[in-house]
Computed example of a mutant assay.
Amino acid sequence: MQVAIASGKGGVGKSTITASLLYLLKDDYSFVAVDADAEAPNLGLLLGVTEWEEEREHIGAKIARINTESCVRCGICYERCPYGCIYIDDEGNYVVNELTCEGCNVCGLVCPVAGTITLEEVRSGVIRKATTKYGFPLISAQLDVGRPESGKLVTEEKEWAAKLMKELNLEHMIVDSAAGIGCQVIASLGGADVAILIAEPTPASLSDVQRAYKVVQHFREPAYLIINKADINPGFTGLEEWAEKEGIPILGRIPYDRAVPESMSMLKPVVEAFPEAKASKAIVEIAEVIKREILG
């Protein structure tokens, strides 16, 4: 089974909860974990990963290059670039800013001198693998600064994870999605068997988790909800009302607990660092529900 954990909004505790669930499930199931936030991966940090066993470069982005020797300095590319990424250097040459170039090739199409402006493939980022100290493998990715294709990185992560499942005879793939509803999240939810949504009781989180749920609905996946920091906004019932209306089962509620940020500074899941904390006890109960209702 492939389980995707998403939130729609950043900062609601998705990765910290995911780390704790992985810790609690590791003794009963075999699985590979995937950190599908290529722009800001941190699941490895929460699992104490300090070294990566293998890294693979992802080549796919394209940027424009201007041949200064054949360039006639007409300035048409500078005028027509839709992203404003062409500038004039100290020597009067037209140069492409690699961090902002989108590889659209408008400059190459308008250039009057054939072959002066070309598109070149460059690295978008790296995909890496580690075996956590808990025994299960983790696949992560890191997008390079200013590069597109975060969704393709996540897709390659999941392909690598799927191969590991076959090679190691693993039962499940658990994917920690990025925030938002962009390419990374779409790639995370695509192909999943079930989605676990995490939200906190605030209007902003409700709005964003509703948007994430629309992506889940697009893929026709069953969804479940975890309410984190459940006691920070007494009287707010928007999440429960929305879940009831949509028929989304609530797996559990986790109270706000200062033990969570403290465990993060220790690079450990809270259920390992502080098993008696109130948040840890709530996550343990949720893990039992996941075992019973989802993983079987």
Rank of each mutant, 00 (worst) to 15 (best):
A6C: 09
V12N: 13
G13W: 10
K26L: 09
D28P: 15
Y29N: 06
A33C: 11
V34P: 10
V34S: 09
L43C: 05
G48F: 12
E53W: 01
E53M: 11
H58Y: 15
I59A: 04
I66M: 09
C71I: 10
C71S: 10
C71A: 01
V72L: 03
I76A: 03
Y78Q: 10
P82R: 08
P82C: 07
C85W: 13
L99K: 04
C107A: 00
C107P: 05
L109N: 14
P112T: 12
E120F: 12
G125S: 10
V126D: 12
K129S: 14
P137R: 04
P137G: 11
P148N: 11
L153K: 03
A161S: 14
L164V: 13
N169K: 08
L170R: 08
A178H: 01
Q184I: 01
V185E: 03
I186E: 01
I198Q: 06
P201E: 00
S205C: 11
L206E: 06
V209N: 02
K214C: 06
P222G: 07
Y224K: 02
N228L: 01
A230W: 12
I232K: 06
T237V: 11
G238T: 12
E244D: 11
I248W: 10
I248F: 15
R258T: 15
A259I: 05
V260D: 01
K281Q: 15
V284G: 05
V289R: 06
V289C: 02
R292C: 11
